[in-house]
Amino acid sequence: MVNNTLIVKFDHGCLNPSSSDSLCISKKVNGVYNVVFDNAAPRPAVGQKKLLSNNTFNFTTNYQVYFTQDYSNDALINSATDPKDIGLGQYVEWQDNDLSEAAKADVKLLSTEQAKSSFAVKNAPKSFHVAVKASTGRSWSTIFVDPNEHMGGGTITLTPKNEYILYWYNLADTEYVHEVFEGEAFKFSFPPGDSTRTIRYGYATQDQPADGSESPSFYIVGA
């Protein structure tokens, strides 16, 4: 397990306290970003984090899998089964209308190379979509829902990546499907051996806009 810490700072005057937009974080799984797993807003909704000039988000590489019955963009995710803990190189199986506990996958299910970065769900029914949760410290948050419809009875391989995006969106809830076009978001990752990343939202020269036409952007600190 890796404990990751994301720090997001704002240049002076770049955080609008009247805005209802949320700063959203998504993680890449199976090549896509499609779930908001954490967010905060300058004017938070009930239960939402308040976005400040200096913010810390914590999340880990502990994973769980479960099924959800529906997949719809811009909709809340509804769980159809209890989540099961799972690690890289492991699998769970749909048996007797429930997911089994995780076990080590053999090479027929996950190749030696796949086992380093993936886990699997075996015998998945066609009526469900596989979903993945990650630990965000004291709680769990969904990071991915498989959007694809399958024939049923097969094996679905799930590959979380050390790739994340930040973007602004007008929503107030996690556990929320939102399919993101990568070109509209700021991409980042955690360098090898470093579990902390600091990102600044502001100007090319910190706290100093070039002129009235310069819009704030995201910048990695110390890159």
Rank of each mutant, 00 (worst) to 15 (best):
H129R: 06
V107K: 13
V132Q: 00
E113P: 08
K84T: 07
I143A: 04
A103I: 13
A120H: 01
N78S: 15
T136R: 03
D173Q: 05
L166Y: 00
T159H: 01
F144S: 03
S111W: 01
A172I: 00
H129D: 00
N170I: 00
S100Y: 05
K104S: 15
S127C: 05
K122F: 12
L166F: 00
T157N: 13
S141I: 05
K122T: 08
W140P: 09
K133H: 02
V107T: 15
A131D: 08
P125R: 01
P125H: 05
T136E: 03
F67Y: 14
K108Q: 15
V92K: 03
K84P: 13
A80V: 04
Q90I: 03
D146G: 03
I77V: 14
G89F: 04
S139R: 10
V132D: 00
Y91D: 03
K133G: 05
E163M: 01
Y66A: 15
D74P: 11
G153S: 02
D106K: 10
G87I: 04
K104W: 06
V92E: 07
A124M: 14
R138F: 12
D146C: 05
Y167A: 01
H129E: 03
L88H: 06
A102V: 06
T159C: 02
S135C: 14
G153M: 04
N78C: 14
P83M: 10
D82H: 15
S117T: 15
